[in-house]
C-alpha cells in the first residue's frame, strides 16, 4: 500500500547509475583468485536467502498441479503427488462438477473471469488517469509560472504525510453518498486523480528537461498544451513507464479498500475474491489446489510485467535526492 508511495525512484541518469558497476570488476577479480572462506560463507548465506525467497513459489505451483486428496496423503512430496491441471481448469470454470468434486474441489463455480476483468479494469483505470493527471500537475509545478504555485505544491507535499488508511473510512462514506458502492468506478475513484507521490516523482523529471527544447517548440507555434503532449510527455517516457508499472502493481495488489467498497461479484477484484474463497471454505476441506492455482493466476500478470520491465523496476527503487 504505502510502501510504493514512499519509495522515491532514482533518476535513470546513465553515467551516475552505471558508475559503480563499471568500477567494480577490477577489485573483485583480484579477490576471486584466492577464494576467502568469508566470501564462500557469504555466498552460502545468499543462496539460503534465495531459497527462502523462491521456494514458496515452487510450492504454489506444486500444489496447484495436484489433486486435493493426494495433497493430504503426501504433504511433503516434492513433486505434485498426483499430477493434474484440473485445479487450473476448475478455477477458470472449465471443469465439470463431477471432476471438480473428485479432485476435492467444491462443486460451486468461482466467477474467476469476472474478478480478473474487474481487477484489470480497476488497475487500468487507476493507472491511466492517475499518471496522466499527475503528469499534468507536475508540468504546472515545474514549467509554468503562476501565482501561488509554491504554496499549492506545498499542499501536495503535505498530502504525502497522510497515511492512506486514515482516508479509507471517510472516503467510504463519500463513495457511499455518491452511490458508487459496489462499482468498479467506486474502487478506482479515490486514487484515479493523483497521488502526491506521483506528482512529486514526475516533477523531479520535468525539472531536468532542458528549457530550450520546450522553447523551440513554443517558437514553432505550439501551444502549451500541445507542447506538453508532443514534447514533454514523450521525453519523460522512461519515468512515466516506471511510474505506470508501480501504480499498476499497487492497484492490482490492493485489498483493504476494495474489500470495503465491493460486496458482490459485479465489482469484486481478484485479491478480495481470494480472501473470500479462503474464508468460505471449511477448515478441513479447503480446496488448496484450487486456491493455489487461483493465487498463481492472480499473480501471473505481475510476474509478466516484471519479466518485461525487471531492470526498470529494480533500478527505480532507491533514493535519488538523498545525499
Amino acid at each position: 500500500m504505502t510502501t510504493t508511495n514512499t519509495s522515491s525512484a532514482s533518476v535513470p541518469s546513465g553515467p551516475a547509475s552505471s558508475a559503480p558497476g563499471d568500477s567494480s570488476p577490477a577489485t573483485p577479480r583480484k579477490r576471486t583468485r584466492r577464494l576467502k572462506p568469508g566470501r564462500i560463507l557469504a555466498w552460502v548465506v545468499m543462496v539460503v536467502i534465495l531459497l527462502i525467497t523462491l521456494l514458496p513459489f515452487y510450492w504454489i505451483l506444486r500444489t496447484a498441479l495436484s489433486t486435493n486428496p493426494s495433497l493430504l496423503s503426501n504433504p511433503a512430496s516434492l513433486t505434485p503427488p498426483e499430477f493434474t491441471t484440473g485445479a487450473f481448469q476448475r478455477v477458470l470454470g472449465m471443469q465439470s462438477t463431477e471432476d471438480a468434486l473428485a479432485e476435492g474441489g467444491s462443486g460451486s463455480a468461482l466467477n474467476f473471469w469476472r474478478y480478473l476483468l474487474n481487477s484489470v479494469m480497476v488497475a487500468t483505470l487507476v493507472t491511466v488517469c492517475q499518471v496522466l493527471f499527475s503528469a499534468m500537475a507536475a508540468y504546472a509545478f515545474s514549467r509554468l509560472r503562476w501565482r501561488g504555485r509554491d504554496k499549492v505544491f506545498a499542499l501536495f507535499l503535505a498530502g504525502l504525510m497522510v497515511p492512506t488508511v486514515f482516508t479509507l473510512l471517510p472516503n467510504f462514506v463519500l463513495i457511499q453518498q455518491l452511490g458508487l458502492i459496489d462499482t468498479v468506478l467506486g474502487i478506482a475513484l479515490p486514487t484515479m486523480f493523483m497521488t502526491p507521490f506521483a506528482v512529486f516523482f514526475l516533477r523531479q523529471f520535468f525539472l531536468g528537461i532542458p528549457m530550450e527544447i520546450e522553447e523551440a517548440a513554443r517558437l514553432d507555434g505550439s501551444s502549451r498544451i500541445g507542447t506538453f503532449f508532443r514534447v514533454i510527455l514523450p521525453m519523460a517516457g522512461a519515468p512515466i513507464a516506471t511510474l505506470s508499472i508501480l501504480t499498476y502493481m499497487t492497484a492490482w495488489n490492493d485489498y483493504f479498500w476494495p474489500l470495503m467498497v465491493s460486496y458482490t461479484d459485479s465489482s469484486r477484484v481478484l485479491t478480495v475474491a481470494l480472501g473470500v474463497f479462503r474464508a468460505q471454505s471449511p477448515q478441513s476441506g479447503t480446496d488448496w489446489a484450487g486456491l493455489m492455482a487461483a493465487s498463481l493466476i492472480a499473480a501471473l500478470p505481475m510476474f509478466l510485467l516484471f519479466l518485461a520491465f525487471a531492470r526498470r523496476i529494480v533500478n527505480s527503487i532507491g533514493f535519488s535526492g538523498i545525499k
Binding site: 488517469c129 493527471f133 499527475s134 499534468m136 500537475a137 508540468y139 504546472a140 509545478f141 509554468l144 509560472r145 503562476w146 501565482r147 504555485r149 499549492v152 499542499l155 501536495f156 498530502g159 497522510v162 486514515f166 482516508t167 473510512l169 471517510p170 472516503n171 463519500l174 475513484l189 479515490p190 486514487t191 484515479m192 486523480f193 493523483m194 502526491p196 506528482v199 502549451r224 498544451i225 506538453f228
Partner: peptide, 25 residues
Amino acid sequence: DDTRTALFFIAPAALGLAVFLAWPL
C-alpha cells in the same frame, strides 16, 4: 504569467487532492 494554462493542468489533480485526501482528512 501562465495562470490560466496552469489552472487547466492542475485542475484534475487538485480536485483529487481536495476531494479524496484533504476533505476525508
